[in-house]
């Protein structure tokens, strides 16, 4: 059985990113959302908030994965780490609120089963956005890695070449 391994430093960094983004977008929705909705309409603002939230999660996935691609981690490790971080950060913010919301005693309460389904669907969407960001980061890192195989660009090689050219010039003058 294969072990489920994570790169813990990147996992911690990613979790913090998603946690911060979740709280930030929630604060924006709670504070700015209602007055904006009055001005431009509730549906517009709802769509805008959802788009901003998803885009932010993709960006967080990109930032987390870029660090891992840069150290030539395998795709599996990158995805496991970024998605675990995203799921943990998302769940830490929204799962408790969703559970509290379902248990709130109002006349308009959502049925528990459907609320659980909605939680899972939204979490899957968040993971999908994160995965897309992680894969976009992999493309930029591969181009960087191909440039690395051109040894003439390495600083030490450049230094040696310049020193060699300098010595050759001096030798010609001595001759």
């Amino acid at each position: 059985m294969r072990r489920f391994t994570l790169y813990w430093p990147a996992f911690r960094a990613g979790t913090l990113l998603h946690l911060t983004w979740g709280v930030t977008v929630l604060a924006l929705a709670v504070i700015i959302g209602p007055p904006l909705a009055w001005l431009v309409g509730g549906q517009v603002v709802t769509a805008l908030i959802a788009l901003v939230a998803v885009s932010g999660r993709a960006l967080a996935g990109y930032l987390t994965a870029r660090q891992l691609w840069a150290v030539w981690a395998t795709p599996g490790l990158v995805l496991r780490t970024t998605l675990s971080a995203a799921g943990t950060g998302y769940a830490a913010v929204f799962f408790p609120l969703s559970v509290l919301g379902v248990s709130a005693s109002t006349a308009m309460v959502t049925a528990g089963a459907s609320a659980t389904l909605f939680m899972v669907l939204d979490c899957l969407l968040a993971l999908a956005a994160t995965a897309s960001g992680a894969l976009i980061a992999s493309r930029s890192k591969r181009r960087y890695r191909r440039r690395l195989f051109d040894a003439s660009q390495l600083p030490v090689v450049k230094e040696i070449s310049e020193s060699f050219a300098e010595h050759r010039a001096k030798a010609r003058l001595n001759v």
């Binding site: 939230a53 929204f94 939204d122």
Partner: peptide
């Protein structure tokens, strides 16, 4: 919408 498009009681 901050959590997702399904309308959780956030």
């Amino acid at each position: 919408a901050a959590a997702g498009p399904t309308g959780q009681p956030i």
